[in-house]
C-alpha cells in the first residue's frame, strides 16, 4: 500500500472510530464529503487522489468495519461513471458531487429498459434514494448509462425496509421517462463497456466492505471471549472456541488475499471479462465469509448477542443482506462454475 493510502486509511479509521458503529447517516455522509473521500479514485487531472480501485477498496473496508450507513458505494459508482464519460459538463457534475449532492445507484438489479427514447422499469436495492438528487441507471440491454433526476414526472421512490438497519434501500420505478431529458453518460457499445466496469467495481466494493465488517466483528468477538469469565476462566481459554476464531481469522485472510490479488491483476482494465470474473469471485467469497463469520460470532456471544443493544446483530443483518446484493451467492457460484465448464474441453 502506498504511503498516501496508508495515511488515508489511518485517518479514515480515526474519524470512523470517533463516530462509532453504525453512526447516523447524515453525520457520516457529511464527514465523507468534507474529507474528500469521494475523490479517492478520481484521476489527478480531474482533481482527485488517483488511488484507483485499490484506494476505493481501502475506504470501503474501513467503512465496512464501522457498519457505515452512508451511501458511499453508489456515490462512488456515480463519480466513476461521470469521470469515464465525455460529458461537456463533467467538471461541474463532479463539483456538485464532491460538494455533497448525492447521486445514488442500485446495489442489486438495475432493471431498467430503454424502449426507444423512453426509460421504464424498476431499479431495486437503491441506497438512500430519498436523499439523492439523481439515480445512476444502466439498461438491461447494456445500451444506455444515464443520470436520471429523481424529482421528475414518471419517477416513483418506494422505501423497502430491510432487516439490515445500517443501509436504507428503495425501489425506484421509472414509467415512460423521456431519455432525451436525462443526462446520458454512455450509449451503445460504450455503455456496455462502462456497465462492465461499474459492475466489477460494485462487486469489489461489496467484497471490501464485507472484509472490513468480518474483521471488525471477529476482533469484537475475541475481545468478548477474553473478558467474559465462565467456569473460573476467560472463555478465550477454551480451545473449542479458539479454534473457531482461528478458522474465522484464516477465512477472512483468504478472502482478503483474494480481493487484493484480484485488484492487482485487474489493474486498470476494469471493463475486461477477467475483471468481471475476479470481482464476482471476490464478492462471493468475501460476503459469504462475512455471513458465516457473523453467524458464528453471534453464537460465541451467547445471550448478549441476542440483545438489541449489543452490535452483534447489526453485523449479522448487514452480512446477510450483503450476501444477496449484486448477484446472490448462489447465482454467482453457479455462474463461476458454468464459466469453468465452458472453458474445459
Amino acid at each position: 500500500m502506498s504511503v498516501e493510502l496508508t495515511e488515508l486509511q489511518d485517518s479514515a479509521r480515526r474519524v470512523l472510530d470517533g463516530a462509532g458503529l453504525a453512526a447516523a447517516e447524515e453525520a457520516i455522509w457529511a464527514q465523507i464529503v468534507e474529507l474528500g473521500w469521494l475523490l479517492v479514485a478520481v484521476p489527478e487531472a480531474l482533481g482527485g487522489l488517483e488511488a484507483g480501485i485499490p484506494g476505493a477498496s481501502t475506504m470501503h473496508a474501513e467503512l465496512g468495519r464501522r457498519l457505515s450507513t452512508a451511501p458511499y458505494l453508489p456515490a462512488m459508482l456515480a463519480v466513476d461513471a461521470i469521470c469515464q464519460s465525455d460529458l461537456v459538463e463533467r467538471d461541474s457534475w463532479l463539483e456538485r458531487l464532491v460538494g455533497g449532492e448525492l447521486i445514488t445507484a442500485s446495489l442489486a438489479e438495475c432493471g431498467i429498459r430503454a424502449n426507444g427514447n423512453r426509460l421504464d422499469g424498476t431499479s431495486i436495492g437503491v441506497q438512500s434514494a430519498d436523499s439523492a438528487s439523481h439515480i445512476l441507471v444502466w439498461t438491461a440491454c447494456n445500451d444506455v448509462v444515464a443520470l436520471v433526476a429523481l424529482d421528475q414526472q414518471g419517477v416513483e421512490i418506494v422505501a423497502r425496509p430491510t432487516w439490515d438497519q445500517t443501509r436504507r434501500l428503495f425501489d425506484v420505478r421509472l414509467a415512460s421517462v423521456d431519455l432525451a431529458d436525462q443526462t446520458i453518460l454512455a450509449e451503445g457499445a460504450d455503455a456496455g463497456v462502462l456497465i462492465q466496469r461499474l459492475l466489477a467495481q460494485r462487486d469489489f466494493a461489496l467484497a471490501a466492505d464485507a472484509i472490513g465488517g468480518a474483521s471488525a466483528l471477529l476482533d469484537l468477538t475475541v475481545e468478548h471471549l477474553q473478558t467474559r469469565v465462565q467456569f473460573k476462566r476467560p472463555l478465550a481459554m477454551f480451545q473449542a472456541l479458539k479454534h473457531r476464531c482461528a478458522d474465522m481469522k484464516a477465512s477472512i485472510a483468504a478472502a482478503e488475499a483474494m480481493l487484493a490479488d484480484g485488484l492487482r491483476r485487474v489493474g486498470d482494465s476494469l471493463d475486461s471479462a477477467d475483471a468481471r470474473h475476479k470481482s464476482m469471485g471476490a464478492k462471493l467469497l468475501a460476503t459469504s465469509t462475512f455471513a458465516r463469520v457473523a453467524e458464528d460470532c453471534l453464537q460465541l456471544h451467547g445471550g448478549i448477542g441476542m440483545a438489541d443493544e449489543h452490535p452483534c446483530h447489526l453485523f449479522l443483518k448487514r452480512s446477510l443482506l450483503s450476501e444477496q446484493l449484486s448477484g446472490s451467492a448462489n447465482a454467482y457460484a453457479a455462474e463461476l462454475a458454468l464459466g469453468l465448464l465452458a472453458n474445459t474441453k
Binding site: A257, D261, L285, A333, E335, A337
Partner: peptide, 19 residues
C-alpha cells in the same frame, strides 16, 4: 454448480494467499 462455484473461489483464494 453451486458447490463447484464455491470451491473455485476457495481455490483461487488459497492461490492468492500462497502468493
Amino acid at each position: 454448480h453451486r458447490d463447484l462455484g464455491n470451491l473455485i473461489v476457495n481455490v483461487d483464494a488459497a492461490c492468492a494467499l500462497a502468493d
